[in-house]
Design a protein around this nucleic acid. Structure first.
Lengths: 169, 169
DNA sequence: CTAAGATAGTTTTATATGCAACTATCTAAA
DNA sequence: TTTAGATAGTTGCATATAAAACTATCTTAG
């Protein structure tokens, strides 16, 4: 039986960084964050953790613990702690003691906090829409579905009884 | 003409953080980075900027300037500079003076650097495949296409004559 | 009741990184 | 030439944040 003639072909041992999903996701996430920062950072002096707390409290209705926010946004608890201090200082949230467990505090938006949350939503949704405007409606839906699948696959969905978070911007 | 009866309906003024693309991208990118870090960080003491330089030099063939790497990976030049120093110190890359422009240096992998690059590719591609294994082939292709469109839309593609980078992990 | 361990949240520490200032070199225009 | 401005790369500084140590409280086992 003859030996195959040497023919290199495409090297399986090469890796194109620009087709490598982890790199692309990082780069895209960073760019999108920068694009949104104008809305909440430049305009209102909020950072990402602060915005996440506001959004969680605003959407969830009310009265979450810091722990809960840390878990479901997958943000490190020390990061949440500092952001909570900042939001308290600016009067955007308030802390309610819990008589049943005095280690934890329920957090909720103040009127000012809710007003800021409401004010932020339209421009943020507009930015998001802008970013996704290069996709058709069909593509947007499929993209969201694919993301959901990956999120579930990586156990990223907020199931509340979850593992400790690894922080991210 | 009669006034419409008050009927709340779904509030356009609400924002579900978990359906908000910027948040999802950030969270996913962070998780994927953490998942990959085992390969290059834990095992070889490389960080993301270091890995990006290695990958760029390895794939591109040879002899890029730091500026080029910074631009096309969209990593801040000071971050690249520090990572270059680290890689030089570990003997993974070498610096070639350019007689025509003595401000810049061409960078290229040493044999050790190339060996490390080659060693890293299979496990990294395996991890990537693992992460995307929850999608069908069709979905993977569509996902990549959608990403490409967004990247182009946000002007993230490496066109070399590009704007200065906003750094990211 | 007491002790051991778990949990919520805070603070300290170390590190990573963006920004801006800086050096050295190149280019272009007077 | 000389000078002004651009560019490659480095470094100092400030900030952000993950990890770990710490405090206070709760729970459970003896």
């Amino acid at each position: 039986m003859a030996v195959n003639p040497v023919k290199p072909g495409p090297r399986v041992t090469d890796l194109d960084l620009f087709k490598f999903m982890p790199f692309r996701l990082n780069r895209l996430a960073a760019e999108v964050s920068t694009a949104l920062a104008t809305e909440y950072a430049d305009r209102y002096g909020l950072d990402i953790p602060g915005w996440r707390i506001l959004a969680t409290l605003g959407f969830h209705g009310d009265a979450c613990t810091a722990q809960y926010i840390a878990r479901c946004t997958r943000t490190h608890k020390s990061t949440i702690s500092r952001a909570v201090t900042m939001l308290l200082g600016r009067g955007l949230i308030e802390r309610l003691e819990n008589a049943e467990d005095r280690r934890e505090f329920r957090l909720r938006l103040t009127d000012d906090g809710r007003a800021l949350y409401r004010a932020l939503i339209p421009p943020l949704l507009r930015r998001e829409a802008e970013i996704l405007s290069c996709l058709t409606e069909r593509e947007r839906i499929d993209f969201a579905i694919a993301l959901s699948k990956i999120e579930r696959h990586l156990d990223l969905v907020q199931d509340l009884g979850s593992k400790p978070p690894a922080d991210a911007g």
